Computed example of a mutant assay.
Amino acid sequence: MSEYVLVTGAIGLIGHAVRTRLEDRGDKVIAIDRIATSIDGRDVLECDVTDAHGLHAIARRFPLRAIVHCGAFSGPMVSPDHPMQMIRVNVGGTANVGELARVIGGIRLVFASTATAYGATPKGPVPENTVMEPDSMYGASKAASEQILNAYKRQFGVDTVSIRLTWVYGPRRTTACLIRKMLTDAMAGRPTQIPYGRDFPRQYIHINDAADAMVAALDRPNLPQQAYNISGGSWLTLSEVAEAVMGVIPGARVEVLPGDDPGDMHQERFDISAAERDLGYRPKMSLERGVTSYFDWLKANGVTA
């Protein structure tokens, strides 16, 4: 009987990209999310990660060889005034997925974590053994989820690995994104003014590179670490990001004012050498190339905001 990869959060940016990567290379995938739908002709089954019985019912129907867990509230900007819901979905959902992997046995579980879990960082480069001190419920929920999966690994031998992604941008992102705002403003002939961030660093990663890293973590056997930093390889201030956008997008006009981002923490450059060593990960999408391809996608799909 064929074995499947279960991808949770398959409607989301990362989940859909991972699912597409896997199917395009010939893997059988069961894609689930809170609602049943179809994206680009690819069906998504209804199953919420908070529904433990539903998850086990899926596994009984489709024998699983691996899980890629992307199902969660996808950032600190999502439902910031509902912390208990964040905990229920992000932490409770991860525990349900970890338990599913334990019951099945002998399968790898790749978790889409986040660099936000670190909180503000000491001087870089920042390795994976840096103490996590998250300053948002979202970051805390991801840090807690990592610890739950680490405990499943230590106590029960579940093969888990967490991928700590930096700020993901690119086609199909629906939550707040400054790069998208710069590009859609350029499409409309509007100038963009960002009221903060002239000297504030942000480490963007294109969705293609993020998906590549998740799939690499699925494929590589006997990983020596339980977590890996994944970034696009650059450490730029928001004004430098704006300069890159203006350099490749005709008509883009972006002004970035001084001050820290009030919704983000200062983070130093993340060390991605362990991912290069163990996962064979190297970012392929420079910011300029990623911005250009994103701009083309936005125009082709009529995205205006």
Results as ranks from 00 to 15, higher is better:
P262V: 09
R277L: 13
S234M: 10
T192W: 06
P125T: 07
E128N: 03
I148M: 12
S74H: 13
T37Y: 06
A144H: 08
A115F: 05
A31V: 04
R60Q: 15
L223H: 09
L45Y: 13
D43S: 13
K299C: 08
D159G: 06
L183G: 06
V5D: 00
H16I: 00
I272H: 06
V158C: 11
F156L: 11
N222A: 14
K153N: 12
P171W: 07
L6R: 03
Q203L: 07
S113M: 08
I14V: 15
A115M: 08
H266Q: 10
A115Y: 02
V254M: 03
T292V: 11
A300G: 00
E3L: 08
N129S: 12
M77E: 13
E99D: 11
I205M: 14
L298V: 04
D48C: 06
P125E: 12
A66K: 02
A144E: 02
R180I: 00
G54N: 11
I272F: 05
R42T: 02
C70M: 05
A144M: 14
G232C: 05
T37Q: 07
S74C: 10
D135A: 11
V303I: 15
S286E: 01
E3A: 02
V18G: 07
R164D: 12
M285R: 14
Q225F: 03
N129A: 08
R253L: 13
A186T: 06
A95H: 13
D159Q: 15
R108Q: 12
T50Y: 01
D159F: 05
I194N: 04
P262D: 15
A186Q: 08
P127Q: 11
I32G: 03
I205N: 02
A120M: 12
G92R: 00
P191D: 13
A115I: 09
P125S: 12
Q203C: 09
S231A: 13
K123Q: 14
A216Q: 15
E133H: 13
D296F: 01
G280E: 13
I230M: 08
I11Y: 11
V291K: 00
D219G: 04
A31R: 04
R202M: 07
S79I: 15
S136V: 04
M84C: 08
T184S: 08
D33K: 01
Q225Y: 09
I104R: 01
P221D: 10
R173N: 03
V78K: 00
N208L: 04
D212K: 06
T237N: 09
